[in-house]
Amino acid sequence: MSTKIHTIHTAHLKNNCPTCFGADGLEFTFTQKEKETPFYNKPASQLAETLYCHTCKNTIYPVNWTEDIERVFDYNKKIAETNKHYLKVKPLFYISVLVAIIIVAIAIYVLIPA
């Protein structure tokens, strides 16, 4: 079982960085985890968001966000579309279900005399 992380949405901000006060280095990144097994893929229901400043090379945590950054964050979170939250099964799942049905059918045919 592996976990993949997909980047859903990236946005460059024109707001000032709360650490270095640079106006052109902030970037929001929205990511989503996806659990992958041999039988299915299932995306997580929650998005993870990070705010990174390319000018000072720091991750800006929500404690340090200003009201302007909060507003831009809310806007971009609405734009970021998550992957569907349904279970996507793989061919191995269908094969295993088919084999199980065949085994049950053979067992019923052998155990119940005609």
Rank of each mutant, 00 (worst) to 15 (best):
M1A: 09
M1F: 05
M1D: 01
S2H: 11
S2L: 06
T3F: 02
H6E: 10
H6F: 03
H9R: 13
T10K: 09
T10G: 00
T10P: 00
T10N: 07
A11P: 00
L13V: 11
L13K: 14
K14H: 09
N15E: 09
N16S: 05
N16K: 04
N16A: 04
C17M: 00
P18F: 07
P18W: 04
C20I: 08
F21E: 13
F21P: 00
F21I: 12
F21H: 12
F21A: 13
G22Q: 04
G22N: 11
A23G: 05
D24T: 06
D24Y: 04
L26A: 08
L26Q: 10
E27N: 05
F28R: 10
T29W: 07
F30A: 05
K33M: 03
E34M: 15
K35A: 11
K35H: 11
E36P: 00
P38N: 15
P38F: 10
F39I: 15
F39P: 01
F39T: 12
Y40P: 00
N41D: 07
K42H: 11
K42C: 04
K42L: 08
A44Y: 11
A44M: 08
A44L: 06
A44R: 03
S45G: 03
S45C: 01
Q46H: 14
Q46T: 15
L47M: 15
E49S: 15
E49K: 12
Y52L: 03
C53F: 05
H54Y: 03
H54A: 04
T55V: 10
T55K: 03
C56A: 05
C56N: 01
T59N: 09
T59E: 02
T59R: 01
Y61C: 02
P62E: 08
P62K: 13
V63I: 09
N64V: 00
N64C: 02
N64T: 09
N64G: 01
D68Q: 04
D68C: 03
E70C: 02
E70H: 14
V72E: 14
V72G: 01
F73M: 04
D74I: 13
Y75I: 14
Y75V: 14
K77M: 12
K77R: 15
K77S: 13
K78V: 04
K78Q: 12
I79V: 14
I79D: 01
I79W: 02
A80K: 12
E81P: 00
E81Y: 06
T82S: 14
K84T: 06
K84C: 04
H85I: 06
H85S: 09
H85D: 07
H85Q: 02
L87D: 02
L87H: 09
K88V: 07
V89T: 15
K90F: 07
K90C: 01
K90S: 03
P91V: 08
L92I: 15
Y94F: 13
I95R: 04
V97M: 10
V97W: 08
L98Q: 03
V99K: 01
V99A: 14
V99I: 13
A100R: 02
A100Q: 01
I101C: 12
I102T: 13
I102V: 10
V104C: 03
V104K: 05
A105G: 11
I106C: 07
A107T: 08
I108N: 10
I108K: 14
Y109D: 00
Y109F: 05
V110T: 11
L111K: 12
P113G: 09
P113C: 01
P113T: 13
A114C: 02
